[in-house]
């Protein structure tokens, strides 16, 4: 089976100084597979996801290859790429306000995504929107649909964005820290929904998270990024039980907050791994 997504030697540079923040990463995602992407803050997880979506800022330079369902995305004009977004691939953004228009009630924004790719009457669309909002665990979908983003709590916004990403049942769903603003009970609801939706359509998922426990519940394979490189990849069991890179070992060890007595100093990755060139 050929992979749904194949990224080869992807490099991302920014600005006039062409600072390179992703240094030629390669990975593949099979149809229906869930791939976790973990790694240090600033290591390039979000920009890698944005490159796939074609949503990097204008001052970004991308080289290498990104093939989605056999089609090369690098170098594609936005006019050709835009129709794929929301339909073939969608993304849950790390910061919900990136995806939300502050001047429009959120229900209309979710409906717009739906209507972009399907020809439905507005009444039908509204019904479908309320349904999805309820599925992501929002108790009062009517009120939330009519609210502007600023009138919602952080976790409510995040769930609206999850609803938007799932409503067209795309083949590839990229989730960038989709549950960070959620309390654990709602997080469980959202993860279960994601799990069921991905299964229902056989969609693939690139799941970015700093929460290793969450990754372990949803993903089969894991990539570890550090300073713009993928330093390790493997199955869940390989990464969690027998990490080979010292950085990964530190990451796994520091994840267990409950293993440390309250008030004690927490271990950090630096206890396991010293960055070259940093004090």
């Amino acid at each position: 089976m050929s992979p749904l997504l194949e990224v080869t030697d992807l490099r991302i540079l920014f600005g006039r100084s062409r600072r390179e923040v992703v240094h030629g990463v390669s990975f593949a995602l099979e149809p229906g597979q869930r791939l976790g992407l973990i790694g240090e803050s600033g290591s390039g997880k979000t920009v890698t996801a944005l490159a796939i979506m074609g949503l990097l800022a204008d001052n970004a330079y991308v080289s290498g290859s990104i093939r989605l369902a056999g089609r090369e995305l690098v170098g594609l004009r936005d006019r050709d790429l835009a129709p794929l977004r929301g339909d073939l691939m969608s993304m849950v953004f790390q910061e919900p306000m990136t995806a939300l228009d502050p001047t429009m009630p959120v229900g209309r924004q979710v409906a717009e995504v739906l209507l972009l790719h399907q020809n439905l009457g507005h009444g039908v669309a509204r019904g479908r929107v309320l349904e999805v909002l309820a599925e992501v665990g929002l108790e009062d979908p009517e009120r939330v649909a009519d609210a502007y983003p600023h009138a919602l709590s952080g976790g409510q916004r995040q769930r609206v964005v999850v609803a938007m990403a799932l409503i067209n049942r795309p083949d590839l769903v990229i989730c960038d820290e989709p549950t960070t603003a959620l309390d654990v009970t709602v997080q469980a609801t959202v993860l279960n929904l994601l799990d069921a939706e991905l299964d229902a359509v056989g969609a693939s998922c690139l799941f970015i998270s700093h929460d290793l426990a969450v990754v372990s519940q949803l993903c089969e394979r894991v990539l570890v990024m550090l300073d713009g490189d993928i330093v390790e990849q493997g199955t869940l069991a390989q990464i969690f039980n027998a990490p080979t890179h010292p950085y990964t070992r530190g990451l796994v060890a520091t994840a267990r907050l409950d293993a440390v007595a309250p008030g004690e100093r927490l271990p950090t990755v630096e206890d396991f791994y010293q960055h070259p060139g940093r004090p």
């Binding site: 973990i38 240090e40 803050s41 960070t180 700093h210 990451l251 520091t254 008030g263 927490l266 271990p267």
Partner: peptide, 19 residues
């Protein structure tokens, strides 16, 4: 929610700082 978006290592560092 000061640490919810932070990876575990930076989270540990910020919590140590607060402590």
């Amino acid at each position: 929610e000061p640490v919810s978006a932070l990876d575990v290592s930076v989270r540990a560092q910020v919590l140590n700082l607060v402590r």
